[in-house]
């Protein structure tokens, strides 16, 4: 990217490539589906489908900005989904994990977020203070979370959730799905954090040059820890939304979501060399991959080819990211 891009159409496109790409894709898909993909219902479906991933991508996106990575995301979301679901089952369900338990919906919500917080602290501690490479540390916690998921659910599905709990994610505010509102709140919060607080500037500084950050008086370890904690909190809430939306959770819930989230953050312009990435970009990355999923399902493209296309897009995004960084 040229630094001194003049205010021209080319400059605009180059600066907002992600957004432009998305809009063009929407138009092309709209034509291919003869307007079908542009209807409100389609947008609602797309938004609902991508909300949980959006939380994951926002969390891991911030971590990638600090030059880290988080492989535990999918399993932590899954574990949070299982724990929250287990506390929200209908009391008369015979196969419930805790038969007869009847709690207000807030309890499973807090429990699910708690799971995320604990794993965030654990990951953050290992990476920041234990000096473990993030890839290895979170590979470990990913495996631990996967194990806990199996142990906790006895490898069976935790289903039959209370309606009150299901409404958290399945409800609508007018035409707007609740899920979208939660994502919007998270986006607003993180946007302010990254762009308008010293906290946010420090995240970029740590990713940009950890040594220089230390010289500038930034407590690098503590700040890094906080980023993993924040990401964990987002995963925890994502798990709650996932179980609420599905009305169930099992040991496979959230499986492999880390790869989708990392891919979305990457496509959204978060650089794996650290220090670069925007909240808007991450959301566009999530929507772009979501739109590809959605569009190909809509057009009846064979699932196998969908994987092929997704893979190609991730590779091109990373390739271009490296070009830019070089």
């Amino acid at each position: 990217m040229k630094q001194l891009a003049k205010p021209s159409i080319g400059g605009f496109i180059s600066k907002y490539t992600g957004y432009v790409t998305f809009v063009v894709m929407v138009i092309v898909l709209g034509i291919l589906t003869r307007g079908g993909s542009l209807r409100l219902l389609s947008w609602q479906n797309l938004a609902i489908a991508e909300s949980v991933r959006a939380f994951g991508a926002l969390g891991v996106g911030m971590i990638i900005i600090t030059r880290g990575i988080d492989l535990s995301l999918g399993q932590v979301i899954g574990l949070s989904a299982c724990v929250s679901a287990s506390l929200a089952q209908t009391p008369d369900y015979v196969s419930a994990l805790y038969p007869g338990l009847d709690l207000p919906a807030i309890v499973p919500v807090i429990a699910g977020i708690g799971v995320g917080v604990l794993f965030g602290l654990f990951n953050g501690f290992l990476v920041a203070y234990g000096k473990l490479p993030p890839f290895i540390a979170t590979l470990g916690s990913m495996t631990i979370a996967a194990g806990l998921q199996l142990i906790y659910t006895h490898a069976s599905t935790v289903g039959s959730l209370q309606n009150e709990y299901k409404k958290i994610a399945q409800g609508f505010l007018g035409p707007v799905p609740n899920m979208v509102i939660y994502v919007a709140i998270a986006v607003l919060f993180l946007w302010v954090l990254l762009n308008h607080t010293k906290q946010g500037k420090r995240i970029y500084a740590i990713g940009g040059n950890p040594t220089a950050a230390r010289v500038s008086g930034i407590a690098v370890k503590f700040e890094t820890m906080k980023v993993y904690l924040m990401a964990g909190t987002l995963y925890g809430f994502a798990g709650v939304l996932l179980s609420s939306r599905l009305g169930l959770a099992n040991a496979l819930t959230g499986d492999m979501m880390e790869l989708d989230a990392i891919a979305a953050a990457t496509v959204g312009g978060v650089s794996h060399s650290g220090g670069v990435g925007k909240i808007g970009g991450i959301i566009i990355g999530v929507l772009t991959l979501g739109l590809i999923n959605f569009g190909m399902t809509y057009l009846g493209v064979d699932s196998y080819y969908q994987l092929l296309v997704k893979g190609a897009i991730i590779i091109s995004a990373v390739y271009l990211d490296m070009r830019r960084a070089a």
Binding site: K201, Y204, G208, N209, V215, S216
Partner: peptide, 26 residues
């Protein structure tokens, strides 16, 4: 070591200038 411990290469001039002063400017 200016490159290794001084600059934040990808951040802009404003951000590079203001980093240690953020406490004061919050």
């Amino acid at each position: 070591d200016r490159r290794g411990a001084g600059i934040f290469p990808l951040l802009n001039i404003t951000e590079n200038t203001s980093m240690p002063s953020l406490d004061r400017l919050t």
